[in-house]
Write a protein that binds this DNA or RNA. Structure first.
Length: 425
RNA sequence: GCGGGCGUCGCCAAGCGGUUAAGGCAGCGGCUUGUGGUGCCGCCAUCCGGGGGUUCGAAUCCCCUCGCUCGCCCCA
């Protein structure tokens, strides 16, 4: 096979699918504007250590899924596998955190070397929000609300908000000891993955998919029972506020983030219509991350949603019919002199704000009109040899229900006529 | 990293050991020497993801490989 192909898991986004993406992006942008959340853009490439420290060596993402390489200066670089670490790094690096709380959003491609699957690619796209410097339970709810409402605004149905609390870092440390001790006593009854996690990431054992392990775990001490009074009160406040806002949720004790800097609220928004990868949006509180990356103690909460999965859901629902781009004018011409005038006319109309396509084929008029019709344009401008001689342009309504006499106008008059009809009130 | 399914024209899709590799859509040209949406005519894979093998003979059988896809793991 001589032809070149894109890399595995790296998808092209073709013109016919772009409208939906742009709709999502535009909706998100406007939604964030109204929510007083501003955009931040960070590099796709970072030093590897950022993710090793920011996500955790024990995670699959860092351990076996990163695109990491040495650059020409022998530095270990990594294509970002997620957005949070970079945003926090940028906030620390530029002193944003000393200027007060930050309400930030980002979007763009992320890279993870995984086996592609439904709703999963190696280069995939996320939109995420990070609220840095917000400690109160109400900010957890605001973050969730921004995500939930964005999805609702986009018309995604059938979503479920799953919620859990991981407690404070002290709660977690205490629980971790209890859990590890309990697991150690039953080590031989666990699946091999879970055995390995006792040391590396014990909380993740709770999330094991192995049915036998899950049966065993039914007896295990629960994280909820290990929460301090303060943590429980905080979790109750989150639930209360969600209820007040009318955002439905389901408690999911198995929703776990294994790393130490996660705390309190963890949530996911899932859909059953996505196949195996059901999570559209995931997030939680990460009060420990900023200090972990060398910044000042800063409470924070954030989330990320997967664009591919979102678009998948959107294209499944019929309500999301996206209008094709509208062309105002299609310019048809025949002959060299006419082509030159067509070019000038197209430019002039574009400068005036019209969307104009010019047929450059020089083919028979019949062909050009066929294309004009298929282009979806409302009007066709015709320039042939006679028009060149007379200094006029033919104007034809392509969408007229009844037959309508074609007009012959000067370019100025044509522009005026179109302006009146297309851009007028 | 591990399993299952699949790979014939840009898209859809016949074919199931011997065909000049159907057909539809899209595209291109024409019918109409300057006027569209319908119709009609013509063109559009010496080749069946790639490589090797079996056979007188393969797109059709076997092996390897690449890719796509679904699932596991993990995650958005």
């Amino acid at each position: 096979m001589a032809s070149l192909q894109s890399l595995r898991g790296m998808a092209d986004l073709l013109p016919e699918r772009i409208a939906l993406w742009q709709l999502v992006e535009a909706t998100a942008r406007e939604h964030f504007r109204r929510s007083a959340i501003t955009e931040i853009r960070t590099p796709l490439l970072e030093v590897t250590e950022l993710f090793a420290r920011g996500i955790g060596e024990a995670t699959d993402v860092v351990g076996k899924e990163m695109y990491t390489f040495l650059d020409r200066g022998e530095r270990s670089c990594t294509m970002r596998p997620e957005g949070t670490a970079s945003v926090v790094r940028a906030a620390i690096q530029h002193g944003l955190l000393s200027q007060g709380p930050q309400r930030l959003w980002y979007g763009g491609p992320m890279f993870r070397y995984e086996r592609p699957q439904a709703g999963r690619l190696r280069q995939f796209h996320q939109i995420g929000v990070e609220l840095l410097g917000f400690a109160d339970a109400s900010s957890d709810v605001e973050a969730i609300s921004v995500a939930w409402d964005l999805l609702a605004e986009l018309g995604v149905g059938g979503l479920e908000l799953q919620l859990n609390s991981l407690g404070s870092s002290e709660d977690r440390a205490r629980y971790r000891e209890v859990l590890v001790a309990w697991l150690e006593q039953r080590r031989d009854q666990l699946d091999t993955d879970s055995q390995a996690r006792i040391a590396s990431n014990p909380l993740r054992v709770l999330d094991s998919k192995n049915p036998d392990t899950q049966n065993l775990l039914a007896e295990a001490p629960s994280l909820a029972s290990a929460l301090s009074d303060g943590s429980q009160a905080r979790f109750a406040a989150v639930q209360q506020a969600l209820t007040v806002l009318g955002i439905p949720f389901a408690l999911n004790p198995r929703l776990v983030r294994g790393l130490d800097y996660y705390s309190h609220t963890a949530f996911e928004i899932t859909s059953s219509q996505l196949g195996a990868q059901g999570t559209v949006c995931g997030g939680g509180r990460y009060d420990g991350l900023v200090p972990q990356l060398g910044g000042p103690a800063t409470p924070a909460i954030g989330w990320a949603l997967g664009m591919e999965r979102l678009v998948l859901l959107l294209s499944q629902s019929e309500s999301s019919a996206v209008a094709a781009p509208v062309l105002d004018l299609y310019v048809v011409s025949r002959g060299e002199a006419a082509a030159a005038q067509a070019l000038a006319l197209a430019r002039r109309c574009r400068q005036a704000g019209l969307a104009v396509e010019r047929d450059a084929s020089g083919a028979a008029f019949a062909k050009q009109f066929k294309r004009a019709d298929r282009s979806g344009a409302c009007w066709a401008a015709v320039i042939g040899e006679q028009e060149v001689v007379e200094g006029v342009v033919g104007l034809k309504n392509l969408r007229a229900a009844a037959e309508q006499a074609d007009q012959r106008l000067t370019p100025e008059a044509l522009l005026e006529a179109l302006n009146k009809r297309l851009l007028g009130p």
